[in-house]
Computed example of a mutant assay.
Amino acid sequence: MRRESKTVVEKLDFENFFKGIDQSAEALQNETEFTYLEALIHTGELLFKGETNLHLSELALKKFKNSLSNIDLNKISKEQIRKAFQLAILKGMKEATQSNHAMTPDAVALFISYLINKLTEEMEHFRILDPAVGSGNLLTAILNQSTKSISSYGIEPDETLLQLAYVSANLQQHNVELFHQDALMDIMVDPVDIVVADLPIGHYPNKENSNRYKLKAKEGLSFTHHLMIEQSINYTKEGGFLLFLIPNFLFESEQAQQLHTYIKESTYIYSLLQLPKSMFKDEKHAKSIFILRKKADGIKAPSQALLAELPSFSNKTALSEMIKSMNNWLDAYIK
């Protein structure tokens, strides 16, 4: 009974928080030329700071603030804040959807969080980098599911997404260092224990910068996702782990052999977990979780990589059996 009561309270907290920020953002959008996402950034800042530097009429300011008056951040869990803020961002993205604005599905973010908890089980503290942080949803999901001391870093070239990540992290009370830059340029972060990324897919336009990478294309433009893998390995400590969300076609391109060779030279392949195809409207957009470990003295490659097709996340029995098998495998090869 208590558990049901807690679930009801959490649902009400979620609904109340989402309704408040959504109405506030809409009120600001109606009074200004802001997009919904821009208005959401100002809404989040007002909620976090308790004040705004926007120059609004008294009536507009009242409308902007009114919807937030019933929200007490101290009474809402970090996960409820993350999920509600994520829902508002998804609403805003429908206004002007861009291919690089796709958000990591929630079930996938939580599954990656489980994997990172297993990989860091024996660490008291770890450092994590997301070189394609976007609105921060994947990174903050990981932070919310861990009880460890974590230093976290995110890179994002899109200013709107970076501001959303900043506001979201603040509302969840996470100390994340965010950098507004191209992740394929030099990053002012020391090597980390974990790199996690939902890889951006496409061609990298900066040909001059791509020339410094081993995975540059022999002709024409290089693949952003190939260069991002190389850059991530560069910023991972020896023995550190890398978890990528990759398209299932990653090793089917004309540059696939070059990528495969580089990965085998620099890392050990630990696992390739194919996400349920039912998650994707079109099979060509299907993805997998790719786990690598950077080579280091004293670390051997697993005798066999963990290759699996994950069951539907809604099939709890099958998923539970899969997680048991994965736990056994991870315990054997990580420790």
Rank of each mutant, 00 (worst) to 15 (best):
R3G: 01
D13G: 03
F18Y: 15
I21H: 06
A25R: 06
A25T: 01
Q29V: 05
E31T: 05
Y36C: 02
L37A: 07
A39S: 15
L40M: 07
I41F: 14
K49E: 14
N53Q: 11
L54D: 11
S57N: 07
L61K: 08
K65G: 07
K65S: 15
N66K: 09
N70S: 12
Q80Y: 06
R82G: 01
A84W: 02
L87I: 00
M93Q: 14
E95T: 03
P105D: 01
V108C: 00
A109L: 05
L110H: 13
K118G: 05
K118D: 00
E124S: 15
H125P: 01
F126D: 05
L129Y: 06
A132V: 04
G134C: 09
S135N: 13
S135T: 10
G136L: 00
N137V: 06
N144D: 11
K148R: 04
P157A: 02
D158R: 02
T160H: 11
T160W: 08
S168V: 03
N170F: 09
V176K: 08
E177M: 09
L178W: 15
Q181D: 01
D186A: 07
M188Y: 08
V196W: 13
D198S: 14
D198T: 10
P200W: 04
N206Y: 11
N206E: 10
K214F: 13
K216S: 09
A217K: 02
G220W: 03
F223Q: 12
T224M: 07
H225I: 02
L227C: 09
E230G: 10
Y235F: 08
G239T: 05
L242Y: 01
L243R: 12
I246K: 08
P247R: 11
H260T: 10
T261E: 13
Y262P: 03
K264E: 10
E265S: 09
S266K: 15
Y270A: 04
L273Y: 02
K277E: 08
S278R: 15
I291W: 04
I291G: 01
K295V: 01
D297G: 00
I299Q: 00
Q304T: 15
L306K: 12
F313N: 03
N315D: 14
N315W: 07
N315I: 03
S320W: 03
E321V: 14
M322S: 03
S325I: 12
